[in-house]
């Protein structure tokens, strides 16, 4: 019964039920077919399509089927193939129907996003070199600033609690291991 359905029916099926789980903050614009907003959707779908094909290719290198059932390559192969298939469908559909546009964030929010990612990357890079407390303190200050906190005392308190306080609570009271600061930097509080 499912096989007898055309793709169109499946589509209309889902679209008939008014947008159940649409994230209200996802794009409500549709592509104007120009510039990044328009192409972003297709680029993403294409990326997944290529990814799917790559997975297929890797899967072929693994044993496909043994006498005892599917080998390592079986499921990834089909998964990769299906992914490419669905992406192809999406790509074709994107030329016929409306697709969501990717609004590039404006300067302010863009800065927030970039700094947030950079801060977390900094966390990853430095946590094992500088220890949790120092790294987190820096990260929190950066984040607080870029997300708009301009009240210095509040910001400092939050940053200190988040780094020193949390570090203390976890490593002293709870006995959880957090990377310590190098040398004797924070020895006086026993971190």
């Amino acid at each position: 019964m499912v096989a007898g359905l055309s793709r169109g029916t499946l589509e209309s099926l889902a679209l008939n039920v008014p947008n159940p789980s649409k994230d209200p903050r996802s794009s409500t614009n549709t592509a104007a077919d120009d510039g990044v907003p328009g192409h972003a959707y297709r680029v993403l779908v294409l990326a997944f399509l290529v990814g799917g094909l790559l997975v297929c290719r890797t899967a072929i290198g693994l044993t496909y089927y043994t006498q005892m059932g599917p080998g390592p390559g079986f499921f990834p192969f089909w998964a990769g193939a299906l992914l490419s298939l669905f992406c192809l469908m999406l790509l074709i559909q994107s030329f016929r129907a409306q697709i969501p546009a990717f609004d590039i964030p404006e300067k302010g929010p863009m800065l927030k996003i970039v700094v947030t990612i950079a801060a977390i990357a900094g966390f990853g890079l430095f946590i094992e070199r500088l220890g949790f407390v120092l790294t987190m303190f820096g990260v929190l200050l950066a984040l607080l600033y870029v997300h708009g906190c301009r009240m210095l005392p509040t910001g400092l308190v939050v940053a200190l609690t988040g780094s020193l306080g949390v570090g203390f609570a976890f490593s002293r009271w709870l006995g959880v291991f957090l990377p310590p600061a190098p040398g004797a930097v924070l020895q006086f509080i026993g971190l």
């Binding site: 499946l10 679209l15 789980s21 080998g71 469908m89």
Partner: peptide, 30 residues
């Protein structure tokens, strides 16, 4: 959600992510 093909694509993507690791029967990295 609003689009079945997109949901299916994501589901299959999840399947691929889940197969990353060591193969449970042959022990080869996947």
């Amino acid at each position: 959600g609003s689009s079945m093909p997109r949901a299916l694509a994501m589901a299959v993507f999840g399947l691929i992510l889940g197969s990353i690791g060591t193969d449970p029967t042959m022990g080869s990295p996947r």
